[in-house]
Amino acid sequence: MRAINKFDLYNRVTLSDGTTPKERMINHCKKNIIYKSRRSPSRKSVLIDSEQKDVVIVSGSNNHVKTICALPNDIIYDGQIVEWEKSHWLISDVDIESSVYYKGVIHQCNINLRWQNKDGEIISRWCYAETNTADGIKEGNTLNLTDGNLTLHLPLDNETRQLRLDRRFLLDIEKDNPTAYKLINRNVVSGIYDENHEHGVYIITLQKSERSHDRDNYELMIADYFKPTEDKSVGINCAIKFDGSPTIKAGGYYKSFNAVFYDKDGSEISQEAIWNVAVIDEHKKYFSIVNEGSTIKIKADNNEGIIGSKIKIELCNSAQNCSAELYVKVVAIL
Score class of each variant (00 low, 15 high):
Gly305Ser: 13
Asn317Tyr: 00
Ser294Pro: 01
Asn303Ile: 08
Phe261Trp: 02
Phe261Asp: 00
Glu292Ala: 14
Ala273His: 02
Ser294Lys: 08
Ser270Cys: 03
Glu325Ser: 13
Asp265Phe: 12
Asn321Met: 06
Ile307Asp: 10
Ala300Thr: 03
Phe261Val: 01
Val277Asp: 05
Lys312Pro: 03
Ile274Cys: 04
Ala332Asn: 15
Ala278Cys: 09
Ala332Met: 12
Val330Met: 11
Phe261Arg: 01
Phe261Glu: 00
Val328Gly: 10
Gly252Thr: 11
Gly305Lys: 13
Lys299Thr: 08
Val290Ile: 05
Val260Thr: 15
Ala324Phe: 06
Cys322Ala: 08
Asn291Ser: 01
Asp265Gly: 12
Lys255Met: 08
Ser294Thr: 06
Asn303Phe: 02
Asn291Ile: 01
Asn291Phe: 05
Asn317Phe: 00
Asn302Met: 10
Asp281Cys: 02
Ile311Asp: 04
Ala259Arg: 04
Ile280Gln: 10
Asn258Tyr: 07
Phe287Trp: 02
Gln320Ser: 14
Ile274Pro: 00
Asp265Cys: 10
Val328Ile: 15
Glu292His: 12
Gly293Cys: 06
Lys285Pro: 04
Ile298Tyr: 03
Ser256His: 07
Ile307Asn: 07
Trp275Tyr: 03
Ile333Arg: 15
Asn258Asp: 13
Asp263Lys: 02
Glu325Pro: 00
Glu314Gly: 03
Cys316Gly: 11
Lys312Trp: 11
Gly252Val: 07
Phe287Ile: 02
Gln320Arg: 15
Tyr254Met: 12
Asn258Arg: 13
Gln271Asp: 03
Asp263Phe: 01
Gly266Pro: 07
Val260His: 11
Asn321Lys: 09
Asn303Met: 04
Leu326Arg: 07
Asn317Trp: 00
Asp265Glu: 15
Ala273Met: 04
Ile289Leu: 04
Ala259Val: 03
Phe287Tyr: 08
Ala273Gln: 02
Trp275Asp: 01
Ile269Met: 02
Ala300Asp: 03
Glu304Ser: 13
Asp301Thr: 08
Ala278Lys: 14
Tyr327Gly: 10
Ser288Asn: 14
Ile311Gln: 05
Val330Pro: 06
Lys312Cys: 13
Asn258His: 12
Tyr327Cys: 12
Ile298Asn: 05
Asn291Arg: 02
Asp265Lys: 14
Ser270Lys: 08
Asp301Lys: 11
Ser267Asn: 15
Lys264His: 09
Gly293His: 06
Ser267Pro: 01
Thr295Leu: 04
Lys264Leu: 09
Leu326Thr: 06
Asn291Ala: 01
Tyr286Ile: 06
Ala259Leu: 07
Gln271Leu: 01
Gln320Leu: 09
Asn291Lys: 03
Asp281Ala: 11
Tyr253Gln: 15
Gln271Ala: 05
Ile296Thr: 03
Phe287His: 02
Ala324Val: 06
Ile311Met: 09
Trp275Pro: 00
Ser256Trp: 02
Glu304Pro: 14
Val260Lys: 12
Glu304Asn: 14
Tyr327His: 14
Gly305Cys: 09
Ile274Gly: 00
Ala273Lys: 02
Val279Cys: 04
Ile274Ala: 01
Tyr253Asp: 15
Ile311Arg: 05
Ile311Val: 10
